[in-house]
Write a protein that binds this DNA or RNA. Structure first.
Length: 212
DNA sequence: ATGACGATTTACT
DNA sequence: GTAAATCGTCATA
């Protein structure tokens, strides 16, 4: 029996949600019933209206980012660089447009199909390169704009399976600045990236990560 | 109507 | 290490 988090799990502030998602399982069920899944090992928090790196900075609300304004527990999937998708879990409640970017998962189910979907991970064949980046995991799990605005609490196509009741202990979580947001000035430096310490499936190797 | 820009990945020097 | 790929979106006009 698959246990999904309650709505209240998602309605927390984005930093708490970014931490709480670590160690939970992201599950994708394709139309033909095949399952693709992995353990979430890296996330980033986007703090909404005041966060210069967030797509909802200063209240921006467009067709692209509309899903970020939905209730906690929905997805916000966006298209970027003309070729990639990235998947967020919306936090808090409508009117507080915050989210958590899913940056890496440790693949656990459907690896064969993931390798088919991610040819670049085949040379050499290495599961560490399968889902170690926000666009890589979307490609591997077949997540695109069709899954934008999906409700993770009720969807049969994409959901979170709760593997642990409590957030990982701070000592098991490493913290760093977010990746790829240098345009955001002071906000680029803030410690809003969270990943499982010593996990080999994160998007970037960090020699001496700061715990927290 | 136009132009600049990405919450990235990949291949290559 | 650097650079190319590639195009929807949005701000400006």
């Amino acid at each position: 029996m698959v246990r999904r988090p309650a709505r209240s799990f998602f309605r927390r502030d984005p930093v708490a949600l970014a931490r709480a998602l670590l160690g939970q399982r992201l599950v994708r069920v394709l139309d033909d019933g095949r399952r693709l899944a992995g353990t979430i090992v890296e996330t980033e928090a986007y703090l909404g209206l005041n966060d210069a790196a967030a797509h909802t900075y200063r209240g921006r609300r467009t067709t692209r980012n509309a899903s970020m304004w939905l209730d906690g527990g929905h997805t916000y999937v966006y298209f970027t660089y003309g070729m990639h998708y990235c998947c967020n879990v919306v936090a808090q409640t409508p009117g507080r447009p915050t989210a958590v970017l899913l940056r890496a998962i440790e693949p656990t189910e459907g690896l064969d199909l993931m390798f088919e979907r991610r040819p670049a991970a085949k040379h050499p064949q290495n599961p560490r390169n399968l889902c170690s980046g926000p666009a890589k995991l979307c490609a591997a799990l077949d997540i695109d704009r069709n899954l934008d605005g999906e409700d993770l609490q009720t969807s049969s196509r994409l959901f979170i399976e709760q593997l642990r009741a409590r957030t990982l202990p701070a000592a098991a979580i490493a913290v760093s600045p977010r990746i790829g947001v240098d345009y955001a000035g002071a906000w680029a430096q803030k410690p809003l990236r969270f990943f499982c310490r010593d996990n080999l499936y994160v998007s970037r190797f960090t020699p001496h990560p700061k715990s927290g």
